[in-house]
Design a protein around this nucleic acid. Structure first.
Lengths: 206, 206
DNA sequence: TTTTATTGATTGAACGTTCAATAAAAAAAT
DNA sequence: ATTTTTTTATTGAACGTTCAATCAATAAAA
């Protein structure tokens, strides 16, 4: 069935199939044959488009992180309010975007995070994303707090977000996004009340 | 070198060697030969004492969770103060015990957590431990808050603790236990301040 | 007819498990 | 005390399985 211009189509098919396979049986038992079966193609095509299994896994993690960054960026650009609270709220909302926390992406994210401990390339991707989140949070907190306090607030909120993801990925029913967002926003209120003097704002959910 | 009564010695050697191997190269590349080499024995002995690789991995996770539970229990038992604040503080301290967050145990913990998503036996162990932590936190918060608020406080603090572990396991330098404990305790203070004053149900405080 | 995309059997390496052989300690016998 | 027997712990080569990667053959589109 060779048509010209299949490359972008096949690449996306295989990345999606990889997430589905990891969601289904975990990273350890995800073989190239299983991924290929999910995508409806043969196993050999993976080496052809990604140079090998590792290349496909790296591309998959890259896409997950890109999507996450995008979900945050979209919400921050849509803000009419430029307050620190609004920006940080948008970061929280982006991190609990439904397309991210629901379905295969969540389990894949955790699997890659664990795997990145011992794979330099994945660790690099992880670090870049991690530092951007921390840096953004820190910069916004800095507008209403002293440096040391902003640092702690940013680290605390980042830990809270990751902790909610982690626990959500483990529960068989999946993450309850609404509850997670509520807890994160409540924590944000507490941070502002504790360190700053800004009055809490209301946040409506969709 | 067969001496009688080697079983408990070998079992502990192999469990320790398993953590060392996972710390060194990750769970995915931890083979029975590598574990055996770490312990200074042959590969066949693993099947003899644990029935196979899976049995050894299960025993290793079980030990990590047992140690963690023990670290919390010791601190709670040593309290002279029976206040909710003191109990929850002891739970935090136990979870950031130096023997737990330092060295091979931390990375092994995260590796097993990720792995437990698709291995029913590990998931069961994980769930039991998880529920105990949540139940303990909830019970203590309940002494100064309404039910719904205690529930949220317990979920938030559990997420915070796990998030700090998660981020600590990933940083190459390892978790900064002092900073993690500071963030967790600060969050606890905020929870008491936030919920404590909005809920005049109980006047008990530390 | 040429180009491009895809297949799938084959290959070689790596892994966990098994088990007959071995070696040392403990127990029994001299 | 010394030798023999029994018990226990351990080894490591062999086996069967699984997997990722390769590449010559194939088939469809240009």
């Amino acid at each position: 069935m060779p048509k010209v211009g299949m490359e972008p189509i096949r690449r996306q098919q295989l990345i999606t199939a990889t997430m589905a396979a990891i969601d289904e049986v975990g990273l350890a038992e995800t073989t190239v044959m299983r991924i290929a079966r999910h995508a409806g193609v043969s196993a050999g095509i993976i080496s052809h488009y990604f140079g090998g299994k590792d290349g496909l896994l790296e591309a998959t993690m890259r896409q997950i992180l890109t999507d996450l960054t995008g979900a945050v960026a979209v919400r921050r650009h849509a803000l009419e309010d430029d307050s620190p609270r609004a920006h940080i709220g948008a970061i929280i909302e982006g991190n609990f975007d439904r397309t991210q926390v629901t379905g295969p992406a969540a389990k894949t994210w955790l699997a890659f995070w664990a795997s990145s401990m011992h794979k330099p390339m994945l660790q690099r991707l992880q670090n870049v994303n991690d530092r951007r989140l921390y840096s953004n949070l820190c910069h916004q907190f800095r507008r209403v707090m002293a440096r040391a306090e902003a640092r702690n607030a940013a680290r605390g909120l980042a830990a809270m977000i990751d902790g909610l993801w982690l626990r959500g990925a483990l529960t068989p029913e999946g993450l309850d996004a609404d509850e997670a967002r509520l807890l994160a926003h409540t924590y944000l209120d507490q941070l502002f009340a504790h360190y700053g003097c800004t009055t809490p704002a209301s946040h409506t959910n969709s």
